[in-house]
Design a protein around this nucleic acid. Structure first.
Length: 623
DNA sequence: ATAGGGTTAG
């Protein structure tokens, strides 16, 4: 009996669609026991089927794994190829199939029956270990690699380093890495990517600097790492450096740098990457488009986000969710919900993030009833178990709407432990709706859950200040000092001609400070004619009103807007980024500025967008 | 034969 070698490459393929639903054919390709094999065998004899219809390697694998090892060997005698090579092919299909454990079992049987593993054998078993995160067997295979004298095979050592790192054994990975007589780019890249994944961006950067040569993947890992850990500036700088070095970004690089652009609101670079992607063809890539949607939405350009979404030939749940989350952040609740309906109608299944967007939209527009409905529907209709984020949205929804008691009860009845964000949402509602008692309750939990977050102390002291309880304000201040908590200084930034200009309150460091304040004075006169009245109650210091006005007029977002008016031509949209939330006075001022300057002003707040146009804001003053 | 990618509440 001779069989054609092409048979060797018939994979087990449990998924293979059989044109004729013949149960025997099906069994032949999917059997997993010698008993089933006998049935097949009997059938083949009866029908006199050609031998070429038999997937020999699968037969051998199943036999070997089911204590008919010698039978398996017999099969291999029929084939004109070396025995190890045949076993290696079996191992590979097992390692890459949906039962990698079998590859490991087969490996041990090979040893039992004196089949000597070679470098390929080891590579496939290591692959199986990686897929299973099985470091125990990995260690054993590592031992064999050394015993077989393969300890200088870079392929294998790379896989071993990768395996240890994947399984969280960074120390061992590092030791193997350090001991390697030679390393290639991949060795370094494996270490860098794994360090980044474990959040050790500094460790990764050290290796990145140290490595003798870097390829696109090395750069991409670092850029992605910085983008992910909230250091978008570093990510962008590295990206520019990479371009300088003459390397061409790939799709993954583009995604990574776009995430950074989104985070820091760097629209200029984001647009440039978009152009580049269109030129080079990356715009056909779904992930690139999803990230572009998010980038544009986070940079305040919903129209552009929508254009990307619209032009996509294929969309995933992420594309839809990115749009919904973006619309929610812009306060366009109705549109967000309309999007959700369209999404459902196209048969797309929403996920947990989709609902974060939906609930976010409801809470920002105060549509409590709908929020409740969606929260219930999420589990009932889509089987999604609410996560802490969803509970946070609900507490925010109730709190903003003034349903503070309900919010409190909701927290007490949560099936999972509330975190700082959840109590923080209640605290925020307490400030808007002036409820000192519940604010104090929230604060009690917050000083346990998130004692170093300055924001909560600030809100509480603001609540006291508004009520004129200055001795309590002083007490909170003391508490902050005792705990070493410092108030984050507010800043606003604006990008002009590719340069970021940053302003803090009362800023006098900007080279054009004088011009800015002069322009502000002139602007202020026109604003007052339009009905602007400074709202000094937002200045929570115990002082005279004219003093307060001085503080008020030097808020960073006002300075940034004035600078934008000076530096950009008529009709240009002014885009501001802010690290905290917009104060009530600035909010009122920006509405009026949008009228007297006939400009659109988009402010990205700590957690949403305000789009000021013709005297009103997209948030509908509910924020 | 060996290395990666997006959306997330305040």
């Amino acid at each position: 009996m001779i069989c054609s070698v092409s048979l060797l490459h018939v994979p087990p393929l449990p998924h293979r669609a059989s044109p004729t639903p013949n149960p025997i054919t099906h069994l032949l390709h999917n059997f997993s026991s010698p008993f089933e094999l006998k049935q097949v065998h009997a059938h083949l004899l009866k029908t006199n089927s050609p031998l070429s219809s038999i997937p020999l390697l699968r037969v051998a694998s199943v036999c070997a794994l089911n204590s008919s090892f010698s039978y398996a060997k017999l099969i291999f005698e029929l084939v004109d190829a070396s025995e190890v090579a045949l076993w290696n092919t079996c191992l590979r299909s097992l390692a890459e199939g949906d039962s990698p454990v079998d590859a490991i079992s087969l490996f041990y049987r090979l040893r039992e029956f004196d089949v000597c593993p070679d470098n390929y054998t080891c590579s496939f078993v290591l692959k199986a270990c990686s897929r299973l995160l099985d470091v125990r067997n990995g260690r054993i295979v590592h031992g064999y690699v050394e015993k077989l004298g393969l300890q200088s095979n870079m392929f294998l050592l790379n896989m071993i380093v990768h395996l240890y790192a994947l399984c969280g054994e960074m120390g061992v990975a590092r030791m193997v890495f350090d001991k390697m007589p030679q390393r290639d780019v991949i060795t370094w890249n494996i270490m860098i990517a794994q360090l980044v994944k474990r959040g050790d961006i500094e460790g990764a950067y050290k290796l990145f600097v140290e490595m003798p040569e870097r390829n696109v993947r090395s750069w991409t890992s670092m850029i992605g790492g910085y983008a992910q850990c909230g250091k978008p500036k570093e990510a962008v700088d590295l990206f520019l450096e990479m371009e300088e070095a003459g390397l061409l970004p790939n799709e993954v690089t583009v995604v990574a740098v776009l995430v950074a652009c989104a985070d820091m609101g760097n629209l200029d670079l984001g647009r440039r990457i978009h152009d580049f992607s269109n030129r080079i063809g990356y715009h056909k890539n779904i992930r690139v488009c999803n990230t572009l949607i998010d980038m544009y939405a986070k940079c305040g350009c919903l129209d552009d986000a929508y254009r990307i979404f619209n032009d996509m030939e294929e969309r995933t749940v992420v594309s839809w969710s990115a749009m919904i989350v973006g619309l929610a952040a812009h306060g366009q609740a109705e549109e967000a919900l309309a999007f959700f309906n369209k999404m459902i109608n196209t048969g797309m299944k929403p996920n947990a993030v989709t609902f974060i967007g939906i609930l976010h939209a409801c809470s920002h527009m105060g549509i409590v009833g709908k929020g409740r409905k969606y929260f219930a529907s999420m589990t009932k209709d889509y089987g999604i178990i609410p996560r802490i984020e969803h509970y946070g949205c609900m507490v925010d929804l109730f709190s903003r709407a003034g349903l503070l008691q309900e919010a409190h009860e909701f927290i007490m009845n949560m099936p999972i432990a509330p975190n700082g964000v959840v109590w923080g949402a209640l605290l925020g509602g307490c400030k808007v709706h002036k409820n000192i008692k519940l604010a104090e309750e929230a604060t009690r939990h917050l000083s346990e859950l998130d004692p170093l977050n300055d924001g909560y102390y600030v809100v509480l002291s603001n609540i006291y200040a508004e009520a004129g309880r200055w001795e309590d304000v002083a007490r909170v201040r003391r508490l902050m000092r005792d705990r070493g908590v410092k108030k984050t200084p507010g800043w606003s930034s604006i990008m002009v001609e590719g340069m970021v200009h940053n302003f803090v309150a009362g800023d006098e460091t900007h080279p054009q400070t004088e011009e800015i304040y002069k322009t502000w004075e002139k602007l202020l006169e026109r604003m007052k004619l339009e009905g602007y009245v400074p709202n000094t109650s937002v200045v929570l210091l115990d002082m005279e009103d004219d003093q307060k006005e001085k503080f008020l007029f030097r808020h960073s977002e006002k300075l940034a807007v004035v600078f934008g008016l000076i530096k950009t031509g008529p009709g240009t949209v002014i885009r501001i980024m802010k690290n905290l939330r917009v104060c009530e006075d600035c909010h009122a001022a920006l509405k009026i500025i949008s009228v007297v300057s006939t400009r659109e002003i988009v402010v990205r707040d700590r957690n949403r967008f305000h789009c000021f146009k013709n005297g009103s804001c997209s948030c509908g003053d509910y924020w």
